[in-house]
């Protein structure tokens, strides 16, 4: 088995997949902490559908998917995150409205042009093994930028997530920080989508945060351990998917689920210990 693991690294396309995947998983988990708390868990899902529609537009126009999907998804993310501020439509309904309309548009466009082909399926379920060099470069750069920006604006993100009004009242430029966060989220989701697929990207946002916050109390520890949890699940999912020849995205999510169940029982055990003294 150990040999099989080592074999994985002989192939450049697997090296690419491993590096890009690790970066994206860590990054999505970190951004996830604030998204989940702000009831934006499903933004991954929503944006990936926007990405799907952008992808079909790219098919119709016959140009590279990334260059169409990145600007469209970024716009949608900024719109969604700012919408919740002063609108009568709540965040979850707004996400549902936008993502489903985009999905519909995407399906219509695809069926008009050439019907569902393999590329489209890749977008739905991810294609970690089909990543090219451009994908790798984009994944690593976006993740790197997102992590750096997150670390440097950590205090602001914490304060805005906890109490937006207070943060605004004491003179922080909340709107700017929110736009920056929206753009980062969008960029990571666009690259992440290619890798685990539109259907599974939300689980990477939600699982680590929810699992870890059952055990840890402080925001800082939840951020750090979400990243670690996500990375471990990725590595386990990545290798086991080769050993058992199962799609990688699904395997990563399964490991996240396992960690979630473990964390749940640990927190139950903790509570029991407290009540029993």
């Amino acid at each position: 088995m150990f040999n099989e693991i080592l074999n994985v690294f002989k192939y450049p396309f697997l090296q690419r997949a491993f590096i890009a995947g690790l970066f994206i998983c860590v990054c999505v988990a970190i951004l996830g902490v604030s998204l989940v708390v702000k009831r934006f868990s499903m933004i991954g899902d929503g944006l990936s559908h926007v990405g799907f529609s952008a992808f079909s537009i790219a098919c119709v126009l016959n140009c590279a998917p990334f260059f169409v999907s990145i600007p469209i998804v970024v716009l949608a993310a900024v719109f969604l995150l700012l919408l919740s501020e002063n609108s009568k439509i709540k965040a979850d309904s707004a996400i549902a409205l936008i993502s489903n309309s985009c999905l519909a548009i995407g399906v219509v466009l695809i069926s008009i042009t050439n019907g569902i082909n393999k590329d489209v399926l890749n977008y739905m379920f991810g294609s970690i093994l089909a990543l090219n060099n451009l994908d790798l470069i984009l994944a690593v750069t976006f993740s790197f930028v997102a992590i750096i920006v997150f670390i440097f604006s950590y205090n602001k993100i914490f304060s805005i997530t906890f109490d937006e009004d207070f943060t605004k009242a004491v003179g922080v430029r909340v709107k700017l920080s929110k736009i920056v966060m929206a753009i980062l989220t969008a960029l990571i989701i666009v690259v992440g989508m290619k890798f685990v697929g539109a259907l599974l990207i939300s689980s990477l946002i939600v699982f680590p945060v929810i699992s870890v916050s059952m055990i840890f109390k402080s925001f800082k520890s939840v951020v750090i351990f979400s990243a670690i949890d996500s990375a471990i699940c990725f590595v386990l999912g990545f290798f086991s998917s080769f050993i058992f020849s199962i799609p990688t995205g699904a395997m990563i999510v399964i490991f996240n689920l396992v960690v979630f169940v473990i964390c749940y029982f640990v927190s139950l055990f903790k509570k029991l210990k407290i009540t029993l003294g």
């Binding site: 708390v37 009831r39 914490f158 997530t161 916050s213 840890f216």
Partner: peptide, 9 residues
């Protein structure tokens, strides 16, 4: 403040 029940802090 609208307390977010699952906010770890």
């Amino acid at each position: 403040i609208t307390l977010k029940k699952d906010f770890p802090s």
